[in-house]
């Protein structure tokens, strides 16, 4: 249910791959003497002294430090992007006329209410909910753990009918997407001690 940074990873890998490919092609071109036509004097048997002189300049160390810092920032940002994120909806504004006042409700409030509602479904042991999207196009992501002897079809039917209808009714708009993930709870975390008739 949490979102991973798969898209960012693919983009990063494509960029790094292209850079490596270009570097490899350049090395091949130099070693075969093809680069000499583009940059005169750049051949495989050439003395490396001019390159060494550039590295030995006073500001070369500063450039190296700046480059290292930039690379470190990119690496830290990439690492931070790997943390799975919920991407919950921003606080929903639901008033009809803002001049008379605004109504605000957070995605967590809706998610908690839906999770409470899910627990009213027989045989649901645990429920986790994320609300994404906007007030006009809300998306509901649901994970429920059901008892291992539960009637899965009945649970799914109850969620797709009653639970989503209640959520739509509360939000005043149709859910644009509903994601449902089912898990089987093999351990009973609680035992009912009484029954109300």
């Amino acid at each position: 249910m949490r979102r991973m940074a798969a898209g960012a990873n693919r983009t990063g890998l494509i960029i790094i791959g292209l850079l490596c490919l270009l570097a490899g092609l350049a090395a091949l071109a130099i070693s075969f003497g093809l680069a000499e036509s583009v940059i005169p004097g750049l051949s495989s048997d050439k003395d490396l002294k001019p390159v060494a002189e550039v590295v030995g300049l006073q500001f070369s160390a500063l450039i190296a430090i700046v480059a290292a810092v930039i690379l470190a920032v990119i690496a830290v940002r990439w690492l931070a992007a790997q943390v799975p994120r919920k991407d919950s909806a921003k606080p929903l504004r639901m008033q009809q006329d803002a001049r008379t006042g605004i109504t605000t409700v957070t995605a967590n409030v809706i998610a908690a209410a839906v999770a409470d509602d899910l627990e009213a479904t027989p045989e649901v042991v645990d429920a986790q909910v994320i609300l994404r999207g906007t007030a006009r196009a809300p998306e509901l992501m649901v994970h429920v753990d059901v008892d291992e002897r539960a009637d899965i079809d009945a649970v799914v039917a109850d969620i797709s009918n009653r639970v989503t209808r209640n959520c739509s009714q509360a939000l005043g708009s149709r859910l644009s997407a509903v994601g449902l993930e089912l898990g089987i709870a093999r351990t009973h975390q609680r035992k009912q001690r009484s029954v109300q008739l």
Partner: peptide
């Protein structure tokens, strides 16, 4: 003006004690 912040929503027929719910 009346600004309203909805802090919680509770089902009418409360079944909240039956679950081990947690928000993600």
């Amino acid at each position: 003006q009346v600004d309203v912040e909805v802090m919680w929503l509770k089902p009418n027929a409360s079944g909240s004690s039956r679950g081990v719910r947690r928000l993600l």
